[in-house]
Structures are given as C-alpha cells and as structure tokens.
C-alpha cells in the first residue's frame, strides 16, 4: 500500500476545505482549524475507502471525526461547531455524483437506442443513490456528537479534561 499518498492528499484536502471556508466568509480565527479538520476528515475517508469500506462508510467516519473535533474546536476558537464542520465536510459532498445524476437524467430524455438507454439508466441510478446516501452519512456524522450527547448546544458538552486545561491557559 502507498501510504505516502495520504500525506499528499492531506494537503490538497485541507486546501479544498480552506477554499470553501473563505467562500462562506468564516471568521479569520477559525481558518487554520478548518484546514486541519478538513484534511483529517478527508484522510480518514480515503483510508476507510482504501481498507475496502466503500464511499458511504468512509464519508460517515470522516464526517463523524469532523463532528467530534468541531465540538472541541468550538470551545477553544469560540464559534458554533457548525462553522467548522460544514466547510470541512464540503470536500466530501458528492458533488460529482449529484451533477452526473442530473446530466444522466438530461441525456435520458434524448433519442438513444435501447442498449445505451439501459447503460445510462444504470449509471444514473447508481450515481443518484450514492449521492443521496453519502449526503445522509455526512449529515448523520456531523450531527452525531449532538445526537449522542442529547444536548442542544455545544456549550453544554464537556470537552475532555486535557483540552479543557489547554483552553484555560
């Protein structure tokens, strides 16, 4: 296995999150945290996929890591966890699947012969289902900390003692 590949993709995943963070106009103090979260979450997704977990499970684990880390980040960078979590998971959003589904649907309306139609329908349905389930996994993963701790706000979630000590300093 080529593990060094992950280090390279780590950097690119970080930049991808950073681009979206700037597009969404996040506060300046949160930028480097978003770079880190996006890179870590994306790498976990890639590792899971390499281990044979598939894109849906990979996205779920990646988003869950981002979700939990965003709670700690919210405590020590003073912004809602969602400000960190959304730009970080955006690179994992199945954008390519979503527009390929749309492209497929548009092409299906054209005059195509039976064999091409079946092939096209096959691809379109696969892309569409993947896009939907990946999105579901992302949303579930990001909100997992809130759902599991049954709190309404990240302020009420105690971060582990070690990190807490770091904030107090």
């Amino acid at each position: 296995m080529e593990w060094s590949v992950f280090f390279e993709s780590w950097i690119w995943l970080g930049f991808a999150s950073l681009g979206f963070a700037i597009l969404f106009n996040v506060p300046l103090r949160t930028l480097w945290v978003i770079f880190l979260l996006g890179a870590l979450g994306g790498t976990l997704k890639l590792v899971t996929m390499k281990m044979g977990g598939g894109i849906i499970l990979g996205s779920f684990f990646g988003a869950m890591l981002v979700g939990f880390l965003s709670i700690s980040a919210a405590h020590f960078r003073h912004a809602p966890p969602f400000v960190f979590a959304i730009p970080s998971v955006i690179p994992m959003v199945p954008g390519a699947f979503a527009y390929r589904t749309m492209l497929g649907i548009i092409k299906l309306t054209g005059d195509v012969d039976h064999a091409t139609f079946t092939q096209l329908l096959d691809d379109t349905v696969t892309n569409g289902l993947k896009a939907f389930f990946v999105l579901m996994a992302l949303a579930l993963g990001v909100s997992a900390p809130m759902l599991l701790t049954r709190r309404e706000s990240a302020k009420q979630i105690k971060v582990p003692l070690k990190i807490d000590g770091l904030i107090k300093k």
């Binding site: 959003v93 954008g95 527009y99 999105l135 949303a139 990001v142 909100s143």
Partner: peptide, 23 residues
C-alpha cells in the same frame, strides 16, 4: 473538466436539508 464546476456544488443546502430532515 469534471472538477472545474465543483466550487458550485450546493453543499450548504444539501447538508442543511439532511440535518433538518434528521431533526
């Protein structure tokens, strides 16, 4: 060609949609 439009993907509407549905 495939990646040049990815900056347009509706990430916020789609993620908010699913998190609203879950909620």
């Amino acid at each position: 060609f495939a990646t040049s439009v990815l900056y347009l993907i509706p990430g916020i509407p789609l993620i908010n949609s699913l998190s609203d549905l879950l909620d």
